[in-house]
């Protein structure tokens, strides 16, 4: 029986996801709509082959409308011990909590 080579698939998928998000980052000032399409494709591939997108790459685009954040189109504020990133295209707020460093109580 023919089997899928899942290791190979996920390796190729990972390459493609990283490549597309990087490309979206480069193209966002040239063609914003196309940059969004790259993010969309990257996410589709990542979901199908269960590739995890690292946190620092996830923070480069809006989770809701998938437009990459670019200068003038997003706002970053620190409120109530959270970093709040607002997308000015769709108004979606992403809240990233800032955890204080763990203190070892026993000492």
């Amino acid at each position: 029986m023919l089997r899928r080579d899942k290791k190979r698939e996920s390796r190729i998928a990972r390459e493609r996801v990283f490549y597309l998000i990087k490309r979206a980052e480069e193209w966002k000032n040239i063609d914003y709509e196309l940059a969004r399409r790259y993010v969309e494709l990257a996410r589709k591939i990542a979901m199908r082959y269960r590739v995890r997108i690292p946190r620092e790459l996830k923070a480069t685009y809006c989770k809701k409308c998938l437009y990459p954040y670019k200068a003038g189109k997003f706002r970053v504020r620190v409120r109530k011990s959270r970093v709040i990133i607002t997308c000015l295209n769709c108004g979606f707020e992403r809240r990233i909590p800032i955890r204080p460093k763990r203190v070892n109580r026993k000492v």
Binding site: L2, R4, D5, R8, E9, I12, A13, R16, L41, K44, I45, R48, Y49
Partner: peptide, 15 residues
């Protein structure tokens, strides 16, 4: 489809 190509393209060649 671009996201299908990894799975279906490789399987097509295997067959």
């Amino acid at each position: 489809r671009p996201e299908d190509r990894i799975k279906r393209g490789l399987m097509m060649l295997k067959r």
